[in-house]
């Protein structure tokens, strides 16, 4: 069922990683991603991969699920590797027509590829172990200092969570409108790109009208339930750091230290 889709492909299970505070996971992922870009040494990538593997084992998410996340980027991945392989000048290894593969090129391609894979897998692991709601909460909480420079943090978070709530509903509605138009003889398949785009107009117009109507209803329902912005609002499930979060932060610091030591001193 189209209604069952969950954004961010949350994988439901019980694990330490799942139970971590979403802020810990969000910051941890951010630090991890940065750590991939500081050094370009093979040993650093090995460290990063081992760290990721450890977290994966702790999270009890099957490896298969995490690798699924690589599918959409296969094309970009191959493109990056191939371009890097042929582009970089240096000691020629194999030469053929105007193209030549160099030792430096291979190294560069390897590190870029690994970097990309770890990048995707790392952020995937976060979305696999954190529900979108908790992620939104974490963002609201982490962005709170921005309130000082008048960024409407609460409103942004509220908009994000409402969007997440309505995406499946609007998807289902799109499906229904498309079927209704098909039954009236609409053709979404044939023709070139422009013709196809044009044929979507009879779907988009009713969809937008219905979305506005829903927005109006929802605004009324929120007002009826005393919504008046973030002022004076309490929280049902406030985020609270537990002991395991401090342990996680400690491990993260150890990891960063390891990356720096390996990157600087091991050649």
């Amino acid at each position: 069922m189209i209604r069952d889709i969950t954004l961010g492909q949350y994988y439901q299970t019980e694990s330490v990683i799942h139970r971590l505070d979403p802020r810990t996971k969000l910051l941890g992922t951010l630090v991890y991603l940065i750590s991939l870009f500081i050094f370009t040494k093979p040993w650093v990538f090995v460290t990063a991969a081992v760290f990721l593997l450890l977290v994966l084992v702790l999270s009890r998410v099957p490896l298969k699920f995490m690798l699924k996340g690589l599918r959409p980027i296969i094309f970009i991945l191959l493109f990056t590797i191939i371009v890097n392989m042929f582009w970089i000048k240096g000691t020629v290894l194999v030469s053929w027509w105007k193209l030549s593969i160099t030792v430096e090129g291979l190294k560069q391609a390897g590190s870029m590829g690994t970097r990309l894979i770890l990048l995707i897998l790392g952020s995937n692991l976060m979305t696999l172990t954190t529900t979108p709601t908790r992620l939104t909460n974490a963002m609201e909480s982490l962005m709170r200092p921005l309130k000082l420079i008048k960024v409407p943090v609460h409103e942004i978070a509220m908009m994000m969570s409402i969007a997440l709530r309505f995406i499946p509903i609007l998807l289902e509605e799109t499906d229904r409108i498309m079927k209704a138009q098909l039954a009236r003889g609409a053709d979404f398949e044939s023709g070139n790109v422009f013709k196809k785009a044009k044929s979507l107009v009879p779907v988009l117009v009713p969809l937008f009208i219905s979305a506005f109507r829903r927005a109006n209803d929802l605004a009324m329902a929120m007002e009826a339930r005393c919504y008046h912005g973030g002022k004076g609002r309490t929280q049902y499930k406030p985020l609270k750091y537990k002991a395991r979060d401090f342990v996680a932060y400690f491990i993260l610091v150890l990891y960063v230290a390891a990356v720096i030591v390996i990157g600087k001193f091991i050649t």
Binding site: T131, P132, T133, S161, I162, L164, R165, I169, R214, D217, L218, A221, M222, R225, C226, Y227, H228, G232, R233, T234, Q235, Y236, K237, P238
Partner: peptide
Amino acid sequence: DNQIIGQVVDEDVAFGPENMGVPT
């Protein structure tokens, strides 16, 4: 569909009391 704000049932029920400033 247009009056449920939370993405999970219990969060939706909590929405009103949250707005009223009821303690956690």
